[in-house]
Design a protein around this nucleic acid. Sequence first.
DNA 1: GCACACGATGAG
DNA 2: CTCATCGTGTGC
Length: 766
Amino acid sequence: MTDELNRLSSDREETDRRDSVPTGADGVTAVVEQTMENDLPSIVTFELIPDWLKPMEEDDDAVEGDKTMERSTKKTIPNILSKKRGRGRPPLPKTVRARLNMIKAQGGAVQKMSVATINDSKRSTARIAKRRMSTPIRPQHNPTLPTGSITIFSSPVFCSPPRVTRVSPLNVDGTQRPCHSPSLQQSSVSQQIIPSTAGNNGTEMPLHIWQGPPLQPISPPKTPEAFVDQTVTIGSPDSPDDDLNESEPEKEEILLLMRDCVGCGGPFPAEKVGDTLCRKCKPAEKKHSPPNIVFRKVGQDQWEVGKTKPPKKMKAAPKYKKVIKKDLAHDVGGDDEDEDDECNWMSMKRSKNRRMCRSCEACLRGTDCGVCDFCMDKPKFGGSNKKRQKCRLRQCQFQSRLHHQVPRVLRSPRRRKMIKKKLKPGQPKRRRTTKNPWDVDGEDYGSDMDDETKPMHFNTKGTRKRQRKKWNYSFKEEEEEEMFIEAMVDEDEPDESDSLSLVQNEPMKLVMDNNGAFNVTQPQSREIYYTLPGVPEVSRMLSPVTLCNNNPEALNEAGGLAGPLPVGISQNDILQIEMVRVGSPVSEFIEPQNTAQPEQQGYQPEHTPVITQIFSLAIGTECDFERDPGLMDLFHSLRQTVLPAHWVGVMAKGPILQLLQCSKLSTMADTVIQIEKGFFYQISVQNQPLLLMHSVYMRHPTCLTSVGDVVSLLLDLEGMSVCQGHQNFNLGTPWEPRMCVRAALCDLLIPKDEEQCEKCAHPAEV
DNA sequence: GCACACGATGAG
DNA sequence: CTCATCGTGTGC
Ligand SMILES: [Zn+2]
Ligand SMILES: [Zn+2]
């Protein structure tokens, strides 16, 4: 408990902290923290609250409510930015750092110099071997990965990459680069982030800040020189090579000739001209086990394949140090590479390095979120240090072992249940901690008192107390190209209803991307894809979004499939929205979430379909997102209103109040209502605006100024369905799915009893 | 197979 | 010595 208490307290603190933080880009940490508020311990209800909104902040621990705050006392705001030591974030080699500094100070010229120097150095011959086994890409960095979306990491089962891609407009455009090349990311980051953030908050160093400087300038493709610099050299103190070090005070800087070991095939620093075996393969050390295959980065996107020995201990030989360096641009990501090289070549340093790709957002992240379970476990955050794991946000997306699990985010709780079947209907579910850092799971919120909340002695089992936590949402922070938020909406049904179709249970995703589009998708089956064009471009960074829907019943009805819900089931019934932040860190909480939350909780702790939080992902730009009093009022009113089933209000930057039908089962699943300032509204179906002459508009006022108007419209819409268009069987190849084509003037929304509008029914005529 | 707790261990 | 975490035994 204490831990949890601590955590909780820490969470709170964070929020507080956050408040102090100016707006700014730094939001990464801040954002998270803020979310904590939702977690207010006092109420179990939290769980119900759309966890997704509670970004990382809350872990189960936080959720657990009662915690007191021992932590608060201890906790001082840990320096998130502080460098991780030891196994922590691999620090740049001193030399590298020094060089970087020099470079910074002197400018690009330095880089070249350094390079030259290196080359000139004694072992100038080195590097030849490098290219031999080059591979285009490092395995982990899957070229195809959509950079931005979380879905990428999600389990195959639930999400298919394609889908993901679709979800994010960014991905769609293809603008994003699959590769995780640091440079790319960096550049993107810098572009988006830096401008706005510039120096706003002093308190926390925003990610961009520390990354930015070096990156920005260089973000563009690396120059050849840069690569050169990256050469890694290894030397052992003992070895003759040491003399090489000479110029550099630090041995690390030595440049060695890299060769492929005849014995193991791995690259190694040749100590002598005739060396053919790496140290390990030399007589004395040959015993080593089979070499591991490692990848070494040779160029921007090139990787060399090499082999190294298993992490053995290099201790005996004082560590080899690598040298090198690269220009700053690489630094950000580059340093990663250095490190990688080192690790790989050396002997895979082991643990940590293996768990870091160094180029993903997580790896690049320098700060602990302070709100995730792992962070909260840290003493610096007032935790008990039991878990001893890296911040969730810093867990490598590619190599963290914690990661490889299927992100729950993508799974529907229900499915899990079905699979596991461990839980009995009606029984409180156990909360599980997700190992996958990125895992976002909305499940289990309903079970208030889980093991976790209970004191340890309550645990049925033995010595170890099992904590069940879950991440409501995971987000990738960092700006980069993928700045968008994904929210997972799971419609869960009561346990009893397990038998019900899976489809309904499939989670829907709400995605806010850089383009400002808010998308809702259902990962699994057919996707429901919403795009709300209305959001201003400016808001691309990530507009703050607030969702609301206080109607518990509506949720329960979800899909109408769910039968009567058992009282206790509520947790499953709730509409869960998990938010995954892919792009930039959430910078702030602009919204009065506090106010909203309490209310909701009060209303329906259990079913809480309500999602109310505003996130500002904008990195630097915190958005000032303009708020239109009128709209906000309407929004707040809607919040307190029971909207027709599954309609959720979303306050997006613009400001635009958007109403989304979150149930894919609804005929209005693809429909979005956007209310702008002045209450003018627009209805879009599958991203297409309804023609102004549509009868729906005729039936309702031009402006939706009141809740009544909105509800009325929603009800009206519920009586309609989406035009299926006309199927063109002649088009496309046989194996292609049939194409449904809508007439240019398609009504989009038609009476429920009809399948298609007139225009689509008789395309020719139209 | 997963999650937890904690020993182990490299880096400062 | 401390910190940050990785890797792993163990309970589930
Ligand atoms: Zn964290
Ligand atoms: Zn990584």
